[in-house]
Amino acid sequence: MPITLAIADDHPVVANGIRTIMRGVPNMEVIDTYTSGQALLQGIQTRRPDVLLLDMQLPDLSGPELAASILKRDPQQRILVLSSTDIILQVKKMLKLGCMGYLLKDADDMTIIQAIETVQQGGQYLSPALNQLLIDDLFRNKKAEKKNTLLTRREKEVLQLIIDEHTNQEIADKLFISLHTVENHRISLLHKLEVKNTAGLVKVALQTGLV
């Protein structure tokens, strides 16, 4: 029995391209294509594919909305996200929802086939470029957690006010502390976050989600 596929993508060139690839693969068959979210939700109830190739954004519904709805109704449905974006937050969101793979649209034919086979067999697949992005994100988050535990509650308050562009005197007035204390907190922040100036504080705080 061939692996049956459904494609949900509103760009004909994508669906046609995958159909062309599948013609050369004897054990795979595209049984349905959908160009809207509503059509997908209706069609997949009557004809369930082994693997659904899902775009991140259809005209009427987003990929996360569709994945959540489909997997709530049918937790066994295997979904392989097919997207042109490598935004790591979107990748993590789709995987958290229960999708079993995330493939970039610039993948070559063999990668697409491998991804479909892996997902159909119950495994997870990520485009190679995304693996490194996820690893980088993991280490960045761990670094942020470490920095976050280093800061006291007061230092976090001072940091937030620095990011909000308040002067030392304004921070002192808002927190009812002395100007000298604010300056000490600022020095401590520079040391703990390993930066040289206010611009560095702002950059690290925003990148790591400290505030």
Rank of each mutant, 00 (worst) to 15 (best):
E29S: 14
M100H: 03
S62Y: 02
L130F: 01
T46A: 14
I171C: 11
G43K: 04
Q114C: 06
T181Q: 11
A8T: 01
T33P: 10
A129W: 01
F139N: 11
L53Q: 03
V182T: 04
Q45V: 10
M28Y: 06
K143L: 14
P128T: 05
M110D: 04
D10K: 01
P2Q: 03
V119R: 00
S188T: 09
T208W: 00
H180F: 12
S178F: 05
I113F: 03
E29N: 11
L201P: 05
P59E: 09
D9M: 02
A68T: 04
Q121N: 13
K105D: 03
I162N: 04
K147R: 12
I113P: 00
L206F: 02
A68W: 00
L40F: 07
L159W: 08
N184M: 08
H11M: 12
V202T: 13
R73T: 10
K72C: 07
K93A: 10
K93H: 06
P12I: 12
F139M: 11
L89C: 03
L134M: 15
Q114I: 07
V25P: 05
D60E: 06
S84W: 03
K143G: 15
A68L: 03
T198M: 10
L71G: 04
L159E: 07
L138A: 13
M28T: 08
R78E: 08
V51D: 02
K143E: 15
P49R: 08
A107R: 00
I79R: 00
Y102E: 01
R140Y: 07
V14Q: 03
T35Y: 13
D137H: 14
S36Q: 08
D137K: 15
V202E: 08
A107L: 02
L159A: 11
R140Q: 15
K203I: 13
V13S: 12
L190S: 06
H180S: 14
M28I: 13
Q42I: 12
R23A: 13
M1E: 07
N27R: 06
Q90R: 00
D9E: 11
D32N: 15
L103M: 05
R73D: 12
L138E: 09
P64G: 09
Q120W: 02
E165W: 12
H180D: 13
F176H: 13
V202P: 08
K143R: 10
T33W: 08
L189V: 12
